[in-house]
């Protein structure tokens, strides 16, 4: 007896990110090219504005890299899976929040794994918590602080964590789980 996980196959096909991620910047460059022929002075001004903005964000970006490095050194995806959704009691909820916060990469890369966990009996609550708590991005905090300030980032982060737990509870109730 055999089975092929067709949804996984369908989901993973056609995501050639290495080529796709250059489409957007290439389009912006084409717009710049067109504007340079129409209004070179204003296009140059736009380029200078972009470079200025880039320098403003450069320092927080260095911190972003350092935090990414620390996470890659000490946090392994296998640990995240083991943390995730161990029951729906307080410990399970806290671990699901932590797993969501420290998880990296695009969300769709996590779908097959979360689906597997669901198939293995994990409830809706930890999955909903995990997906929401991904809104807290510890490695991007330096950029967020540079844009909005400490107070804003701390308050939004705390509220996001609480909202992720509320989200888990809502989903659990609405999906008719005990």
């Amino acid at each position: 007896m055999s089975s092929v996980n067709k949804e996984n196959v369908k989901e993973l096909k056609g995501k050639k990110a290495p080529a796709r991620m250059f489409i957007f910047p290439a389009c912006v460059l084409v717009i710049y090219g067109m504007l340079f022929t129409i209004d070179p002075n204003k296009a140059l001004m736009a380029l200078k504005t972009s470079i200025h903005l880039l320098f403003t964000i450069a320092q927080p970006l260095v911190f972003v890299f350092v935090i990414m490095l620390v996470f890659n050194l000490f946090v392994k995806p296998a640990q995240i899976v083991r943390l995730f959704g161990k029951g729906v009691r307080i410990k399970g909820i806290v671990l699901s929040v932590v797993a969501g916060i420290i998880s990296m990469g695009p969300i769709y890369a996590w779908y097959p794994l979360l689906k597997n966990l669901k198939e293995k009996g994990s409830g809706t609550c930890p999955i909903a918590i995990f997906l929401y708590s991904r809104a807290v991005k510890p490695f991007f905090l330096p950029v967020m602080i540079a844009c909005f300030g400490w107070a804003y980032v701390v308050i939004l982060t705390v509220l996001t964590v609480f909202a992720s737990i509320a989200m888990g509870c809502f989903m659990s109730i609405l999906m008719n789980e005990k």
Binding site: F24, P25, V28, A46, L47, L53, L54, M68
Partner: peptide
């Protein structure tokens, strides 16, 4: 791995920064 992750977000990020430059000006 950090370099790869950083490099993968950079093209879109640079595109956004350049687009903001355009919005600011035009």
């Amino acid at each position: 791995r950090s370099c790869n992750q950083f490099a993968s977000m950079l093209p879109i990020f640079l595109g956004v920064v350049m687009l903001i430059g355009l919005l600011n000006t035009f």
